[in-house]
Design a protein around this nucleic acid. Structure first.
Lengths: 242, 242
DNA sequence: CGACGCGTTGAAACTCGTCAATTGGTGTGG
DNA sequence: CCACACCAATTGACGAGTTTCAACGCGTCG
């Protein structure tokens, strides 16, 4: 029933680092079970201090912050391989919420073992810092996108990055990948209104740059999309997987 | 000439964690010298793989990304106590540039010792993850600000956060703190045009909310500023200082 | 003295947000 | 089986916030 870390389907993918046998042994002990949640379910709440850490095995979700005025910022989309709860692990509480967009399956780790990890498994400790840095990098790029780019550029940027991450997670099929979110989710991620997001998507579709229908995204003219998004070259090496 | 880590003036401040004697001994070995740079000088460049890591001792700077179209996103302001170069340390290259806004003095650390830190000093390793998480948190908040707030709200948010950080660094005097940046710097940080930033600052000054003149920022009505910024309560505990 | 950087101000143009209404699909209860 | 509610996507109209363009003042520096 519960997947053995040694057989983890994610680790077989190219985008993730290989792991040494003794490190694997620790991960097996670190993992205390699996959690399956329904579409729409909350996973972590802002301000809470979760006793558990998670790695996404299957499904998609999103991280977001709610403002007192009711507005919402989607901080990023959550895909298989993502590690959840590290902020609470080191800072004492979550700074954003996480909820499931589709049904999800999560590996559950015991947070009280986190210190053991730092004490006896420096490789994994390094990996955790790496993961935090990757997030920092992504958020810096998102900030740049929202701060400096037009609606069309932001949408191209956001969807290209998403497709790239789907690819890493083994979910993309050529230029096509699943995109189970609503236009409102995308709008909240890019700092745009729903209406303007919809109209800009229509333009991109009419200009044969991309299509998004029935939960699937497809790039028809990746060249144009990338030019619009001003993407920095991707120098990512295999990511750690905890 | 060179400050001994044991006498570090920053560590005496309340906002930073105390450190155990054996940890201090390692920091002393880790520190290889001090670097003094002039106003306007580049410190780290995007894409570069710096062999050194820095902690700011004195002075201020800014982190930024440049876009192909010439626009600039200021990712954040750099104050004493900030650690620079961690991204290059774990990910292999910097994802943004850092430059000095005033004259600055930096502690220099040897990056090749980073692995020693993870291997033999788990407390410090944990602290590095913590620092990365703090950045992640800050960038998430900045993204939310730029994505969801009006010009006035963003400016209040940015300047309040800056004042708070000055306070932690022992640079604030009541409601006043130094602010050696240009309006263009602030505009680029908040995703606003220079002109609109200027006009909004004028409004805030006329409404007696804040004043920014001659390199110093002063809050006249903090209450109103905080309401405008929708600041989340600050739950920060003493930060690690490397 | 002139060049330059920074702050300031006015006017015009435009992107984008808000309001409002419609469509189509899905699920639920009578 | 149909009525109804509900949600996501869509479209039009209008207005507000923001950007862009342009010009000027002021202090500093060579």
């Amino acid at each position: 029933m519960v997947i053995d870390c040694g057989d983890c389907p994610l680790r077989k993918l190219e985008g993730f680092q290989k792991v040494k046998p003794d490190e694997l042994a620790f991960l097996k002990r670190f993992k205390v079970g699996e959690l399956s949640v329904d579409k729409g379910a909350p996973i972590l709440m802002e301000g809470a201090n979760s006793p558990q850490l998670y790695t996404v095995l299957r499904g998609m979700g999103l991280r977001y912050k709610l403002l007192p005025n009711g507005r919402r910022q989607v901080v990023n989309f959550v895909l298989p391989g993502d590690f959840l709860g590290l902020q609470a692990g080191v800072m004492g509480e979550m700074k954003h919420s996480v909820e499931a967009t589709t049904r999800m399956v999560l590996c559950v780790f015991d947070r009280s073992e986190l210190w053991t990890l730092y004490k006896h498994h420096p490789e994994q400790a390094f990996d955790l810092t790496w993961l935090a840095s990757i997030h920092e990098h992504f958020l810096g790029e998102a900030l740049t996108s929202v701060g400096q780019m037009s609606a069309e550029q932001r949408i191209c940027w956001g969807l290209l990055r998403f497709h790239e991450r789907c690819n890493d997670a083994g979910l993309a099929d050529g230029e096509t990948c699943p995109l189970p979110y609503t236009q409102q989710d995308l709008a909240d991620a890019l700092g745009l209104s729903l209406v303007h997001t919809n109209k800009t998507l229509t333009k991109l579709r009419n200009r044969q740059i991309l299509a998004w229908r029935d939960g699937y995204l497809r790039f028809l003219d990746r060249e144009k999309a990338e030019t619009s998004a001003m993407l920095e070259r991707d120098t990512s090496r295999p990511r750690p997987l905890i």
